[in-house]
Nucleic acid binder design. Structure first.
Lengths: 135, 135
DNA sequence: CCAATATGTGAATGGTTGTTCATATGAGCA
DNA sequence: TGCTCATATGAACAACCATTCACATATTGG
């Protein structure tokens, strides 16, 4: 029953269901607070780099050492270490030390959810327990 | 070296339930393809700017004119226009022309979902019909 | 047609960012 | 104790990016 487009032409300021542009004041009032905006953009920014997407995608399957992480994603160990430092500073990953090794894992459920949703959207072939391996 | 235990470790790649670091080869095989990674990072990158987050947050409530959008988010019209151009190039928003006005709206369900999920995570006060505290 | 309005765009710019190279720390091993 | 592996870090450099300013395009009203 959504075909009724007439009638509410006068009182259509409140709820938007018709092609009526939202006025500036209403949109401004509905905007998230600056803190929220800043934080959201910050998180998205962290996910906005292919190298970090690869690192976090690898970490979706479990904790990994820096060395293996670098080998898996095809970046230098230094580059990966820098990336992990950034992610750690933002509490996206956490590290557990075992001797001279450092095991990293994703420590932010929100980031994990966002990444998984995005990967789902593009139809990835990611998880470890999926269809039988090739060859 | 390192073949002392890494060799048979690959044979035990069945199910991960113990704090065993994921080996590099397994993680590499489970990585999304380069195209997917690039695209995902691209989308996140678009959402990684506070100005664009504000613009898209405003557009969550419905289509808007450039002018009102600028007023709502507190940026210059030129800046908003540049941002919309970028978002349009990536098919995130679409535009409908009405005379000299341009009505923009979100045209990417995936981006909308990602943004809404992120805003939910930070506890925004965004939607037009939100908290029932008022009435 | 002219003026005003609404939006689009190009160049310049100041700031940010990711990578590399070199080196440092620090734990295990012979 | 020295030596090597695993990771961390700092400086530097190039690439990218968002904003501003000035101007262009296009449409409506008088």
């Amino acid at each position: 029953m959504t075909s009724s487009e007439a009638g509410d032409a006068a009182a259509a300021v409140a709820v938007t269901a018709v092609p009526t542009p939202v006025p500036a004041a209403a949109a401004r009032a509905a905007l998230p607070h600056d803190d929220a905006v800043e934080h959201v953009a910050d998180v998205f920014s962290l996910l906005g780099d292919p190298a970090r997407v690869r690192i976090l995608s690898a970490l979706l399957n479990g904790r990994m050492r820096v060395r293996d992480l670098a080998a898996a994603v095809g970046s230098s160990e230094s580059s990966v270490s820098h990336a992990l430092r950034l992610l750690r500073a933002h509490r996206v990953v956490s590290v557990h030390r075992h001797g001279r090794e450092a095991h990293y894992e994703i420590d932010d459920a929100h980031v994990r959810a966002l990444l998984q949703l995005a990967l789902d959207h593009v139809g990835h072939a990611n998880p470890l327990h999926p269809v039988g391996d090739e060859h």
